[in-house]
Design a protein around this nucleic acid. Structure first.
Lengths: 219, 219
DNA sequence: CCCGCTGTTATACAGTCGTGCAACAGTCGG
DNA sequence: CCGACTGTTGCACGACTGTATAACAGCGGG
């Protein structure tokens, strides 16, 4: 029995590989089937490394949750970042991007849901969840405020936050159901649906957001 | 070693007890920690019964998912059933009830999310998910249509479905985040937020739904 | 009252779980 | 080219997993 050959990787590379393998396994087999052995296999290492890098499997899974949330919020904010100077277009881009590929992803929704299910009882999860949610909410508020102001609608902080909360719910809900692909409707309808809903929700004139729909075409 | 005393229950009672215990365990410990022994313990029986009633643990968990979805849709439709004849009020009640106790429940959201995370890969789950989603969507369409018609807004099937999809997203998203109680805002604000958003989304005149807010006070 | 049906328990089994630990082997500085 | 540091492996351990099966006991029908 010959010993497995291996390469010594930089600390961050190995951590990254393990986290990615953890998410892969959880996405495919759930927290159940994501055993230390299976994750190590997927990462191309032996289970002992988990202890070496994360102390325990639970700790690694927790780190994977944080890593996932980072990915999700980064991706969301990226859509707004490369938006034009036009506040309407920036908001439309942000909202639309969240219900289109690559955001619309079964893998991401499955992972997100799996972790959400443990937020209440797993120590440390609630902080990760709250931070991600807050970040998303604040990004939304930053995008909504100038749009409201430009159209002469009330934009005090309380109003703005309430609208951001509703908008976040709208986006999240459509993101989840759209990603799961139950076949009840064509997900390609989602950008139009969500932008029309957002216009109404914010009491914006017709086409304020919808006219930027063509700009959302997948590059 | 004395043998455990027991009562012979009606088939449905025992099944119900096991399903409820299954959901309890999954809610508290996730699909991971919900072992056959722990579930049996919670139900006050021995693990062997699982095989007797469901054939296997996986089959029981699947049945528990279907059982949960039935509970959730029943509860949602109940809110609309005991609504008055006024279409506006019926819609307002339905929407509002979904972001208030008892619908706003960490246990329910945790369970829902845990199962959603497995919809993609676990055989049979997607059907349960789709059926529940379709039922919710259709209930929403039935409530939205008369409201649109009464206010002279376009109410063709395609428009109606699109609005129901958006409304469902809005409700789901707020239900999830509101139930998790992250402390970023007071969940008591949700009924007002969701009704205001729904009015805008459907392009209804101000206060069409919001004026029924007082009628939603927890009985 | 007691027999028989069957819902229920108890036990055993092979497999997998997470992880602690000692030995190994890559890799880098000298 | 060699020595030393440490990232990585391999294995062992006890606990726990799901489930098969045989023995038991509650309960209704006669």
């Amino acid at each position: 029995m010959t010993r497995k050959t291996f390469r010594r990787l930089a600390k961050d590379d190995r951590r990254h590989g393990l986290l990615e393998a953890t998410l892969d396994c959880i996405g495919e087999h759930g927290l159940n089937g994501a055993s230390a052995r299976r994750i190590a296999d997927r990462a191309g290492v032996t289970p002992g490394l988990i202890r070496h890098y994360f102390g325990s499997k639970d700790e690694m899974v927790r780190a994977a949750y944080a890593y996932l949330m980072e990915q999700l919020t980064d991706r969301a904010e990226e859509a707004a970042r490369d938006a034009s100077q036009d506040p309407d277009e920036a908001l439309a881009r942000f909202i639309g991007a969240n219900v289109m590929t690559p955001s619309l992803s079964v893998r991401h929704v499955s992972l997100w849901a799996t972790f959400i299910g443990r937020v209440e009882s797993e120590p440390g999860y609630s902080t990760i969840h709250r931070d991600g949610y807050r970040e998303f909410l604040e990004a939304l508020e930053r995008l909504i405020h100038p749009v409201l102001a430009a159209h002469g609608r009330p934009a005090d902080p309380a109003t703005c936050q309430g609208l951001a909360i509703a908008m976040n719910g709208l986006i999240d809900g459509l993101w989840i159901e759209g990603s799961l692909g139950h076949g009840l409707y064509d997900p390609a309808r989602l950008p139009r649906i969500v932008l029309a809903a957002a216009e109404g929700l914010l009491r914006l004139p017709d086409q304020t957001l919808l006219r930027h729909l063509p700009a959302l075409a997948p590059t």
